[in-house]
């Protein structure tokens, strides 16, 4: 059995990669993908602790989170599609209309 620490380290790495993607990249799609990665880091934590404690609740939550993530990805893609149609770009530093 894989020790818990390894799984947590992997999860932390995924979080760090996702954060980097969100904060550093300008392309909206990539930011969206980075959010998915962070979500997957969280899901991995659920599964890891579920296996470690022998409690199936974590697995159930993981499944729920995956389903929510799928819906969220669809909504996010739709939002970016719509932004592209109105602004002609999905570069996030160009999309500044949420401002005072």
């Amino acid at each position: 059995m894989i020790p818990l620490e390894y799984e947590l380290i992997l999860s932390s790495l995924l979080l760090a990669i996702g954060l980097y993607g969100i904060l550093a990249r300008k392309n909206g799609i990539i930011v969206l993908m980075s959010i998915e990665i962070i979500l997957n880091a969280a899901v991995l934590n659920f599964v890891a602790f579920s296996a470690y404690k022998g409690d199936p609740a974590g697995g159930v939550f993981a499944l729920l989170a995956i389903a929510v993530a799928a819906a969220e990805a669809a909504v996010g893609l739709a939002v970016f599609l719509s932004i592209y149609q109105t602004h002609g770009t999905i570069e996030l530093d160009k999309v500044r209309f949420l401002r005072w």
Binding site: I22, L23, K26, V31, D93, V95, R96, L98, R99
Partner: peptide, 17 residues
Amino acid sequence: LRQRQTGQVQTYAWMVV
């Protein structure tokens, strides 16, 4: 305060982090 409201999503994300 409103000067901080840039409309840049990633600036907000920085603040969150």
